[in-house]
Design a binder for these strands. Sequence first.
DNA 1: ATGCTCGAAAAAACCGTTTTAGATCAATGA
DNA 2: TCATTGATCTAAAACGGTTTTTTCGAGCAT
Lengths: 328, 328
Amino acid sequence: MKKASLKDIAESLGVSKALVSLVLNGKGDERGINKQTQEKVRQKAKELNYIPNQYARGLRIGRTNTIGVIVPDISNIFYGKLCKAIEQEAYAKGYNLIISNTYEDVQKEKKLISDLINRNIDGLILASSFDNKNEIEGLREDKFPLVLVDRVFDDFEVDSVSVSNVDGAKKAVKFLYDKGIKRPVCFSISPVYISSISERIQGYMGALKDPNDAKLVQIPHDNIEGGVKTALDELQNEEYDGVFCVNNNIAKALLRELAIRGEKLDEVKIISFDDIEIFDIVHPKISAISQPIEEIGKNAVKLLLKRFDNEKDHVTQHLVLDTVLVER
Amino acid sequence: MKKASLKDIAESLGVSKALVSLVLNGKGDERGINKQTQEKVRQKAKELNYIPNQYARGLRIGRTNTIGVIVPDISNIFYGKLCKAIEQEAYAKGYNLIISNTYEDVQKEKKLISDLINRNIDGLILASSFDNKNEIEGLREDKFPLVLVDRVFDDFEVDSVSVSNVDGAKKAVKFLYDKGIKRPVCFSISPVYISSISERIQGYMGALKDPNDAKLVQIPHDNIEGGVKTALDELQNEEYDGVFCVNNNIAKALLRELAIRGEKLDEVKIISFDDIEIFDIVHPKISAISQPIEEIGKNAVKLLLKRFDNEKDHVTQHLVLDTVLVER
DNA sequence: ATGCTCGAAAAAACCGTTTTAGATCAATGA
DNA sequence: TCATTGATCTAAAACGGTTTTTTCGAGCAT
């Protein structure tokens, strides 16, 4: 059972490929094609189980109803949920997704971008690991439909959806102070040039009562467990009673390490960026700065589609969503 | 800066498209094309930043170096990790992925399969939500390269990679008994026709000392939180001292609900299929039947590639990996 | 000079669609 | 009678590659 093509339908009906194409694309009426002929075509298409070849179609019309999505790591629950939200919105609008991970590898990200583009994706949603906008400056110049999510670049005229990280981090630190914490530490993740991270650090710094109190720990993204261990060793003799974790992975690792050591479990207050399901069932409970993940994803798709519809005079938008403090 | 095509390179060098194509595909020597000409072509291709159009290529040769992946829900950590493993192996072998979610929606799964296939994917890795093999019988008949993962069908001659669910569940129940548990309950998830779930239930049943003791709770997959609440209400007056959760989502929900109620936290022993990071930092700690997710993913890709290389006399394989008991 | 072979490159066909520019033919109106 | 119109439908080009077939000379033997 070979796949049927337009030609197969056309020949078996004694009409032209063009007619079949028009009918199946719903342009039959518009082009004044006989109703009965139209019906026959549709009938035969169903009978032969015709599925249009998207590659031929894509080649011809240059659009493919496919959106590329590049994130650092789909197995990180935040990006997992983000992709889910993106996928739902995209699917509802008739678009397919090609999802890829960079694992923060800049070279891989470069390759993925060009791979996806020569696959004729119609647009790209990108949570970039680049440390600057130069790598994607070309896309902007070419006016390639692009939406940055989660991670953005300053002074870069490309649609983006992000959250108010500085503000969220400030809320977190303020929360710690409100709970009587005297010396809040920040567990950050490297690389710090990622906008969402640097903004959170900035928020932490800005909210400190005394900037000299700043205690900032850098955990490498590719060895979080080890990094947390080292950090805790180094903090052994320091006084601290509160921790602000810049993301859920850090918080999870911190929690595990504290549990293993049996240390500080009741003395330290922890708050993390990203609220994840388990934070209220662990000990100590972890408060969180919750991001509206669904909104981020859906809006990213909406922005992209708006851009498609409005190629000419599209005005660049930067959508910044607010976070919510979840106290525990 | 429009994208450069073969034709652009050919014209600017005064040679034919065919020559350029051959050279860039590394067939220059084989076809006896002048070394210098070859060098000029490569030079110019780089200069014009030439990227071949995959749709034209795919249309002509019928292969696209793209693998489709369909899972129930990428934001479920198990499938997130599975996709990550698949992606790493695939990427290393030069393949791209198109990942889609079904959310257990059978209609959506049908549509996705045909969508992906007419996108000319070279093969499909599928964690199916179908309740029987009929829906994909057609793929088998057409000898479409397909690998089932996680969820398989009986008596179905298609490559598959799964774990020994019955055995794993038995290990879990045995573990509970070993810990002195008298009345183990099984928290299962609907729909139960999913092979991995039904096998785990089967394992639970088979390992019970007294089959009359069987206590099986069905939680609907689309309302786990609510389902767990209802279940706990119903179990209010029952005696039980151990729980076997058929997957990590159920375990997480159970844990949360117990924590909210402040009930049973110290009296009940919980073991779950799927080991996830948080199980050792929650209270009570949750033991687990750990699945070799990476192996599942990598082997699925390997099987598919083997099939590509060996289209003619490929022997169908069913790979069943063992689980590991993680005691806590 | 004629016919052959051989190396190198060009030309053409092809993949399956979409779309443009006509073609065909019957009915209409002046 | 003949251009016009309208309703249907078609031929062919185009998209950008890959692959098969041809062409073109040069070199060589007869």
